[in-house]
Simulated scan of single mutants.
Amino acid sequence: MAAPDPGTKPRHRTSWWLGLVLVLAGLAVLGWVAWQFWGTNWVAHRTQERIVGEVEKKWEADGADVVRVPEGDVEALVRIPRFGDDYSVPVLEGTSDDVLAAGLGHFEDSAGPGRKGNYALAGHRITHGEPLRGMPDLEVGDEVIVQTRSTTYTYVLTSAGADLEVPFTAGWVVDPLPVNPDRGGVQPDQREGQRLITLTTCAELFHTDQRLVAFGVLEKAEPVSR
């Protein structure tokens, strides 16, 4: 009878440990994916609900136009009827990762709510609360309601959510009066002094190179009675 190969056990042991490492690595990847697609949404939705509640209480209590929360400064809440009656998302200043994880971000160099120029907002389409997940469903004529402490501004979209796709470097979309360099492309009515809104988000769910952009114009401004 042939003697057993003395190198068999070490090779088996190495293969077992290698297999275990691969399994653990796979579980770690699955855990990361689950966190990105479900965990961040769970956290973000609760963060948004908390911020909306804090802002509404502050507006009632002390009349501050801008409310400071741990995530940043909030001047407005956005409601989009197309996305449901319970849709209410805070708008924070800036477009950093931390801001976009807590709500919509306001491009700091763009106009304020209801002001002349372009009130430009950014938001996630996937993960971190995905407030603009339904961007492609928006249609011309849909309302975007922006509430501040003193005024409710109703904007009406002049382009649909899937009408315009641009590279993430296309800074013209947040200009005071966006002018599309592609002659004949989607853009707001070219009249100075308009009060515009622009919504921007990722064009594809799993890539960030392209952006979907929708433009709107202020239709009415109504004082808030308190």
Rank of each mutant, 00 (worst) to 15 (best):
T8W: 13
K9S: 03
P10A: 13
R11G: 03
H12R: 15
S15Q: 15
S15H: 14
W16Q: 14
L22Q: 13
A25G: 15
A25K: 11
A25I: 13
A25S: 15
A28V: 11
L30P: 00
L30Y: 02
W32Q: 10
V33S: 07
Q36P: 00
N41P: 05
R46C: 00
E49M: 03
E49F: 01
V52S: 03
K58E: 15
K58Y: 01
G63E: 13
A64F: 00
E71G: 08
E75K: 10
L77N: 06
L77A: 06
P81K: 06
G84S: 10
D85W: 07
D86G: 05
P90Q: 08
G94V: 06
G94F: 05
D97S: 13
D98E: 15
V99D: 01
L100F: 09
L100E: 08
G103W: 04
G105N: 05
F107S: 06
G112N: 01
G112A: 01
P113D: 02
G123S: 09
I126C: 00
E130Q: 15
L132D: 01
R133A: 10
M135S: 05
M135I: 02
P136F: 09
E139Y: 00
V140K: 13
G141R: 07
E143M: 11
E143W: 09
I145M: 10
Y153W: 07
T158M: 10
A162P: 00
E165D: 12
V166F: 09
W172L: 03
V173L: 07
D175C: 00
N180Q: 08
R183S: 15
G185T: 12
G185W: 09
V186E: 09
D189V: 15
Q190I: 10
L205N: 14
H207P: 00
L218Y: 11
A221P: 08
R226T: 08
